[in-house]
């Protein structure tokens, strides 16, 4: 009988050992990291040329998971006008995203005509090519590196009403980060 008790408790201990060490209930964990950068400027002359730098470490979702990142990949991006001078418009809008060095181009998005008011409460989805997506993902391929970016907006032949022209805008970049369980 004593032997049976020993076997009995031994089985419990073995079962507990296997349960605690080999049964991992967690799967890979994905987080959508929304990065936004504001582009604000008073406008001088007849063109807009504004830029902004940002890094992955500027955002809490990246910082909170930095030690467990496995992968980061690009999902989507959009432009929004927050506020602007009345009837602010122009030609040849160019939105560039560079690597942190400010010169290595990751993508370029162009519109022949630009009206700032069109994108208030109606964001412009920035559609880029698969090659440009690959460029961004290649740049982000090492999740341990705190990659930085520069967003640059240019508009030419700018027209507006009023005497103190300005543009407050925002560009949002959405990425997906894979986190170790």
């Amino acid at each position: 009988m004593k032997l049976l008790y020993k076997i009995f408790f031994g089985l419990i201990i073995i079962a507990s050992f296997f349960l605690s060490n080999s049964c991992d209930p967690f799967e890979d964990f994905y987080v959508n990291l929304a990065m936004d950068t504001e582009l604000n400027t008073p406008i001088a002359g007849d063109s807009i040329n504004i830029g902004s730098n940002f890094c992955l470490s500027d955002f809490d979702d990246y910082k909170d998971n930095k030690d467990k990142l496995e992968e980061i990949r690009y999902l989507s991006s959009a432009y929004l006008t927050i506020s602007a001078t009345q009837d602010l418009q122009g030609n040849n809008m160019v939105l560039n995203l560079y690597e942190g060095d400010g010169s290595t181009l990751l993508f370029q998005y162009t519109l022949p005509t630009f009206r700032a008011a069109d994108y208030i409460n109606k964001p412009l989805e920035i559609k880029i090519t698969q090659q440009e997506i690959n460029n961004i993902n290649q740049y982000l391929s090492d999740p341990d590196v705190n990659n930085c970016f520069r967003a640059q907006l240019r508009v030419s032949n700018v027209q507006y009403q009023g005497t103190q022209p300005y543009l407050n805008a925002k560009v949002e970049f959405l990425t997906e980060i894979k986190v170790k369980p």
Binding site: P25, A34, S76
Partner: peptide, 26 residues
């Protein structure tokens, strides 16, 4: 669940919360 979705709304991207990525609950 594991992966969250998103949409582009009037105020920008709305990102849904992800889940706990659990395949089982002990």
């Amino acid at each position: 669940g594991t992966k969250a979705s998103y949409f582009l709304g009037n105020e920008g991207y709305f990102v849904y919360p992800t889940g706990l990525s659990l395949k089982a609950v002990p």
